[in-house]
Amino acid sequence: MISTRLQDAINEQINKEFFSAYLYLSMGQYFESKFLRGIAHWFYVQYKEELKHAEKFISFLNEKGGRVILNGIPAPKVEWNGALDAFNEAYNHEKFITSSIEDIMKIAVEENDFSTQNLLNWFLDEQVEEEAQTLEIVKKLELVGEHGQALYMLDRELAQRQG
């Protein structure tokens, strides 16, 4: 069995993962409307990844004998001031998610819940990758800008992302 404290923290994280998916879907739709389908594709892949993360937490909580409680998901933002603005927001959001998972890890360590720590280690490793990928795009946009050929080339590059 999992403690009520950890169950509650994981339920909150499930909600954050669903919000993450919703946010990235919204970002994808924004870039669809700008005819930047490669950038949109990158966000769609991210959207699907966040859904998988939520499902992983749900499965774990069920396997540990916990109860999954789904809460409402707030509406995401729908407008950005271009690609750099959106990717900066995505990067900051990933840092927020990392911090949230670290907070759950602190509880798992306090409670000597080793199986939850193991799960959270997987997520923390995943977050290192997520932050690095997003930061790389931010840095590229800062370097080359987001107009003309530079944006066109980045859009083509991001279209290649595998899911």
Rank of each mutant, 00 (worst) to 15 (best):
L119Q: 04
E142F: 06
Q29M: 14
E142L: 10
G148Y: 01
T116Q: 10
D103R: 07
K56N: 03
I39Q: 02
N81L: 07
F31M: 08
G38N: 05
A86I: 03
V144L: 10
I73R: 09
F31Q: 03
A75P: 05
E130P: 01
Q149I: 14
G72D: 13
F18I: 04
I58K: 05
T116Y: 06
I73W: 11
I14A: 08
E89V: 14
G163T: 13
Y152L: 09
K106S: 15
E89N: 07
L36C: 03
Q133T: 14
A54I: 11
I2M: 04
R161T: 11
A150F: 14
G148E: 12
E136D: 15
G163I: 02
V128S: 10
E110H: 03
F31I: 07
E79Q: 15
E12Q: 15
I39A: 04
G66K: 12
D125L: 05
Q160P: 06
Q46V: 05
Y152A: 10
A159L: 12
R5S: 05
E79R: 13
E126Y: 11
L154V: 07
E79F: 14
K56G: 04
P74V: 02
N112D: 09
E111M: 14
W122S: 08
D113I: 10
A83S: 07
R67H: 10
Q46N: 09
K106T: 15
N11H: 07
E130W: 01
F114T: 11
E129G: 13
K95L: 15
Q162L: 09
Q160L: 15
I14G: 00
M105S: 03
V68M: 03
D8C: 01
V138H: 06
N121E: 12
M153W: 12
I39W: 01
E110M: 09
E50L: 15
S3C: 00
W42N: 10
G72P: 06
G163E: 14
G38C: 05
S100Y: 07
E102R: 13
L70Y: 02
Y44K: 00
W122Y: 13
L6D: 00
V128T: 13
E89M: 15
Y152V: 12
H93E: 13
K64R: 15
K64P: 05
L151C: 02
A159G: 08
E131N: 10
D155H: 06
K106F: 10
Q7D: 00
F43D: 01
K64I: 02
Y22I: 06
N88P: 02
E136H: 11
A108Q: 10
L36A: 08
P74H: 06
F96H: 12
F18D: 01
W80R: 06
